[in-house]
């Protein structure tokens, strides 16, 4: 699993990246009440706002950690947005993206680097 400074995570299987928000991000947001996942077929660039997560209090953008084509979105979040809090780094995944540039993945932080980054926040 790799991480961004915007608190997204990526798991790579072949050339497909599963993307979500980190446990830290979910904890900071509080109770998630709505998730807008990206449209399947959409092409995203790393750093683009590609999803929205809403708590009782506010709406927050989620940024694409890597570039590529969205090939699947987590439809379960439509009826059960609280899954993002219950299982942020597993069942609460947002989308699957077919990578266009594998080197972007390599440039992301690993768990130790992300934890070190969190410690500076």
């Amino acid at each position: 699993m790799r991480f961004t400074k915007d608190h997204e995570w990526v798991v790579l299987q072949g050339d497909v990246a599963t993307v979500g928000i980190t446990a830290h991000a979910a904890e900071q947001l509080g109770d998630v009440v709505f998730v807008e996942t990206p449209e399947v077929g959409k092409t995203v660039k790393a750093g683009d706002a590609f999803a929205v997560v809403e708590s009782v209090k506010a709406a927050s953008d989620v940024y694409a950690p890597i570039s590529g084509e969205v090939i699947e979105a987590n439809g379960e979040l439509g009826s059960a947005p609280e899954t993002v809090n219950a299982s942020p780094e597993n069942g609460g995944w947002f989308a699957k993206v077919k990578l266009s540039d594998p080197s972007e993945y390599e440039a992301l932080m690993d768990r130790a680097a992300y934890d070190a980054f969190l410690a500076t926040q």
Partner: peptide
Amino acid sequence: PVQYPMGVMAEH
């Protein structure tokens, strides 16, 4: 305080 550890939803 915007929220306590219980969280906005549970506080509400």
